[in-house]
Amino acid sequence: MGSVRTNRYSIVSSEEDGMKLATMAVANGFGNGKSKVHTRQQCRSRFVKKDGHCNVQFINVGEKGQRYLADIFTTCVDIRWRWMLVIFCLAFVLSWLFFGCVFWLIALLHGDLDTDYKDDDDKSKVSKACVSEVNSFTAAFLFSIETQTTIGYGFRCVTDECPIAVFMVVFQSIVGCIIDAFIIGAVMAKMAKPKKRNETLVFSHNAVIAMRDGKLCLMWRVGNLRKSHLVEAHVRAQLLKSRITSEGEYIPLDQIDINVGFDSGIDRIFLVSPITIVHEIDEDSPLYDLSKQDIDNADFEIVVILEGMVEATAMTTQCRSSYLANEILWGHRYEPVLFEEKHYYKVDYSRFHKTYEVPNTPLCSARDLAEKKYILSNANSFCYENEVALTSKEEEEDSENGVPESTSTDSPPGIDLHNQASVPLEPRPLRRESEIGSRR
């Protein structure tokens, strides 16, 4: 089982795998120059863009038009607004034209077009017409509009002379109601789609790998820009990579689940303020055997998904993003964004995407760390350097704002901070800030 798991979770494809794949392509008759073999020097295209759209195009789909027309309502909801407006206008105009032609044909076959009612006051002739005051196609078209929109100006009306005319008036009224219901329903469904809710759900630009509770963890940050909550919010993550099976089958995008606390339930989050999602790199993680150097040379993509129900409509929305291997910062942490004021908490989104480097973060893999092949620094050293990194950030910001350097908390000259780390230190809580992250 261990060997199978290692093969499945191998992220960085070796040169031997690339040569094996190329040999397979030639042997199977696919070596026509169009096949692409992804190596370390040639990274694959992003499968999920940063804005959440999937970078996929469908080609050679059989009976595409028929399949889309069979699900016309979903098609109308998914198309762009400009095409929705075109369909909206065409549906009414074509129905008016169709029934206008029908009423014109009825008048033509009944002989109503030969009668001039402007110079004739004989009401008996008017009563013999199928539709009064309809003696041309324009008049028939206007009567069709008046019937379907129930305008009723009063000059044109159907008589009991022709039952077919009466039937067409009733039929057009029913068709008009159906068109109204369909168009209004599609427009309302399109307006109520929770897709735009994703514009106020954000992911951090970069993911980070750092120590948390004595273990290497992959972390990324999510935030909600609205005050309205995302009900039943939960997160998922998958690692996408290519691999070759033991039988020699090439899988271009193998999807591997990344555990973010599904078993323990901590994948469900209360997204009021930005939260750091934590994936513990343990023996079940696809990143277990990867060191910093392996991450730098790897070719994979981590897709992160945030799902929840919109509070206003109770409709489920899904926000997506992805991180390539070069977008994962090893040995970094996110800057705090949640600050405790006197009577409330304040979230500073200008710090949302910012990170700071944490010294002495192990550069080895989580496996080597678990097997004690890498000796961690003293816990006080880690905490102290973590505090120094934050303090230096604040000093830089104070210097930019014009604060005198004498007010900063610099260490005395001639003292090495790293050498001082081995000395037991008193706890130094942050002056006014605390970061709330997901705790395992």
Results as ranks from 00 to 15, higher is better:
Ala140Arg: 00
Lys193Ser: 05
Arg428Thr: 14
Thr361Ile: 03
Ser434Ile: 08
Ala192Asp: 05
Glu199Trp: 08
Asp299Ser: 06
Lys373Phe: 05
Val403Asn: 12
Asn360His: 14
Phe155His: 06
Lys64Ser: 09
Gly62Met: 13
Ser273Lys: 14
Ile151Trp: 08
Gly414Trp: 04
Ile72Cys: 14
Arg221His: 01
Tyr344Asn: 14
Leu225Gly: 10
Tyr9Ser: 15
Asn198Leu: 10
Gly248Lys: 13
Leu306His: 02
Glu16Leu: 04
Lys128Pro: 08
His332Cys: 10
Asp416Gly: 08
Ser124Asn: 11
Tyr345Met: 09
Pro404Tyr: 11
Val4Gln: 11
Ser132Asp: 09
Phe141Met: 10
Met211Ser: 11
Ala312Tyr: 10
Ile258Ala: 00
Glu280Ala: 12
Gly52Tyr: 00
Lys49Ala: 06
Glu311Trp: 04
Ala70Asp: 07
Arg212Met: 04
Thr355Glu: 01
His343Cys: 10
Trp104Pro: 00
Glu247Arg: 06
Arg44Thr: 13
Gly248Thr: 06
Asp410Glu: 05
Lys373Ala: 12
Met219Val: 02
Asn7Pro: 10
Gly152Cys: 02
Ala25Tyr: 09
Arg333Leu: 14
Asp282Tyr: 02
Leu69Gln: 11
Ser10Thr: 07
Thr317Asn: 08
Phe171Cys: 04
Ile174Gly: 03
Ala325Glu: 02
Lys215Ala: 10
Leu142Tyr: 01
Thr316Pro: 08
Arg8Asn: 10
Ile375Ser: 14
Thr317Gly: 09
Ala91His: 09
Gly176Val: 02
Lys36Asn: 04
Asp71His: 10
Lys34Gln: 11
Ser246Leu: 09
Thr147Cys: 01
Ser136Lys: 02
Lys215Gln: 12
Phe92Arg: 07
Gln172His: 05
Val86Thr: 15
Asp71Asn: 15
Glu400Cys: 10
Leu109Val: 13
Arg44Trp: 04
Val37Arg: 12
His332Trp: 05
Tyr345Leu: 15
Ile145Cys: 08
Asp368Val: 10
Asn259Lys: 06
Ile269Leu: 12
Glu280Met: 13
Leu324Cys: 11
Asp289Lys: 08
Glu341Ile: 05
Phe262Trp: 11
His110Tyr: 02
Gly223Phe: 07
Leu108Gln: 13
Met168Thr: 10
Asp213Ala: 14
His234Lys: 08
Gly308Met: 07
Phe262Thr: 11
Val26Ser: 14
Arg428Asn: 13
Ala233Ser: 11
Val170Asp: 00
Arg268Cys: 10
Trp104Ser: 03
Pro336Met: 07
Ser13Cys: 09
Leu329Cys: 09
Arg8Pro: 05
Val86Ile: 11
Val278Arg: 05
Arg236Asn: 08
Glu396Asp: 12
Lys215Glu: 03
Gln293Asp: 14
Asn297Pro: 00
Asp282Thr: 12
Ala389Val: 14
Leu369Arg: 02
Phe155Ser: 09
Ile251Ala: 15
Ile277Leu: 12
Val131Asp: 02
Thr39Asp: 13
Ala189Pro: 08
Glu280Cys: 10
Asn259Cys: 09
Cys101His: 05
Arg428Trp: 08
Ile302Trp: 00
Glu307Tyr: 07
Leu230Lys: 04
Glu394Thr: 10
Arg80Pro: 12
Gln420Arg: 07
Glu371Met: 04
Arg82His: 03
Met188Thr: 15
Gln255Met: 11
Val126Leu: 14
Gly31Pro: 12
Glu394Gly: 04
Phe30Cys: 15
Thr355Cys: 08
Glu435His: 06
Phe47Pro: 00
Asp122Glu: 04
Asp254Gln: 13
Thr149Gln: 12
Lys128Met: 13
Trp330Asn: 02
Phe98Tyr: 01
Leu225Arg: 10
Val222His: 01
Gln172Asp: 01
Ile151His: 08
Asp17Gly: 07
Asp213Gly: 15
Cys364Val: 11
Glu247Leu: 04
Arg367Asp: 00
Val231Glu: 07
Glu232Leu: 12
Thr75Pro: 15
Ser406Tyr: 08
Gly248Ser: 11
Ala140Lys: 00
Gln42Thr: 12
Met168Cys: 07
Gln42Gly: 13
Tyr356Ala: 15
Leu290Trp: 09
Leu21Gly: 11
Phe270Lys: 06
Ser3Phe: 02
Ile275Cys: 08
Ala314Asp: 03
Phe382His: 06
Phe171Gly: 03
Asp294His: 06
Lys196Ser: 10
Leu113Thr: 06
Leu105Tyr: 04
Cys157Pro: 04
Gln420Ile: 13
Ile87Ala: 15
Thr39Phe: 05
Tyr384Gln: 12
Ile87Met: 14
Glu161Leu: 01
Leu201Gln: 07
His38Met: 10
Val337Pro: 01
Phe300Gly: 00
Val231Cys: 12
Val166Tyr: 04
Glu232Ala: 13
Met219Trp: 04
Arg432Pro: 14
Leu225Ser: 14
Ile11Gly: 15
Glu133Ala: 05
Asp257Met: 09
Asp416Lys: 03
Asp114Thr: 14
Gly33Phe: 07
Val388Lys: 08
Pro424Trp: 07
Tyr117Leu: 00
Met309Gln: 07
Val61Leu: 09
Arg46Thr: 00
Leu290Cys: 11
Asp78Arg: 15
Ser45Met: 06
Ser10Cys: 07
Asp120Leu: 00
Thr149Cys: 05
Ile244Pro: 15
Asp416Ala: 06
Leu108Lys: 12
Lys49Thr: 04
Thr316Leu: 15
Lys196Ile: 11
Val278Ala: 04
Leu253Gly: 12
Ala233Met: 09
Val231His: 12
Asp296Ile: 06
Gly65Ile: 15
Ser422Cys: 09
Ser144Pro: 01
Asp263Gln: 10
Arg243Lys: 12
Tyr356His: 14
Lys50Gly: 06
Gly414Arg: 10
Gly29His: 09
Leu90Lys: 07
Gln238Asp: 02
Asp254Ser: 06
Asp263Trp: 07
Pro252Trp: 14
Tyr349Ile: 06
Val347Thr: 13
His418Val: 14
Glu327Phe: 01
Trp81Ile: 13
Gln293Val: 12
